[in-house]
Amino acid sequence: MPRDDRYWFPAKRYGWGWGPPNNWQGWAVLVGFVALVVVAAAITLPHAPARFIGCVVVLGVLLTAVCWWKGEPPRWRWGGD
């Protein structure tokens, strides 16, 4: 699969969605997402597990929005293209 630096998140070879980041911007977004999930766990899990789940859902929606905005257009792929 040729690398396209225009997209931070390239499409997966099989299936629908995005694969690992292509460049430093994508990696920064992914590391930021993981860091925020860890911080949310440290702050909310001991006292309010439901709040942690809410934080993870919101962060997941934001990550998906960034992937949609800065990633390769998603479509179903069978590996041949």
Rank of each mutant, 00 (worst) to 15 (best):
T44M: 11
D5V: 13
W16F: 15
C55N: 07
G71H: 03
C67E: 04
V38H: 07
R6E: 07
V34N: 09
M1F: 15
R77N: 09
G15H: 09
L36V: 06
V34H: 08
P20Q: 10
W76A: 07
P49E: 10
W78K: 05
R3N: 10
N23L: 06
V31Q: 01
L30T: 10
L45Y: 07
H47V: 12
P21E: 04
G19C: 08
G32M: 10
D5C: 10
W24M: 14
A42S: 09
A50E: 13
G71K: 00
F33A: 03
P21V: 07
R6P: 07
H47R: 14
A50I: 14
W8G: 01
V39Q: 10
R77H: 14
D81L: 00
W27K: 13
C55I: 08
A28V: 14
A41C: 12
F9W: 07
Y14F: 15
A11M: 03
R6S: 13
V58H: 07
A40N: 12
D81Y: 02
I53R: 03
W69C: 06
R3V: 15
Y14E: 11
L30C: 07
G26R: 02
G15F: 05
F52M: 05
A48S: 13
W8D: 05
A11L: 03
K70S: 12
G80E: 02
V56I: 11
F33I: 09
I43F: 09
W69Q: 13
P74G: 06
G71S: 09
V61Q: 08
D81R: 00
R3L: 13
V61T: 13
L63N: 03
V58D: 05
L36W: 03
D4A: 01
V39P: 03
Y14P: 02
Y7G: 00
W69D: 08
P73L: 02
F9H: 00
L63P: 02
W76G: 00
V29C: 15
A11Y: 00
A65T: 09
L59K: 07
V37L: 15
V58G: 12
R13G: 03
C55R: 01
W69M: 11
G79V: 06
V61G: 11
A35N: 08
V56D: 03
W24P: 04
D5G: 14
G19W: 00
G60Q: 08
G54V: 06
C55P: 00
R75T: 05
V56H: 02
W8T: 01
P49H: 11
L30N: 03
W24R: 15
C67R: 02
M1S: 14
G17R: 00
G71T: 03
N23T: 07
D81E: 11
A65D: 05
H47C: 07
G54E: 05
G32D: 07
W27F: 15
T64R: 08
A50V: 15
L36N: 01
I53M: 08
W24V: 15
T64Y: 11
A50D: 13
L30D: 02
V31G: 11
R75F: 02
E72G: 06
P49L: 11
W68H: 10
V34S: 09
Y7D: 03
W24G: 14
I53A: 13
G32H: 04
G17M: 04
W8Q: 00
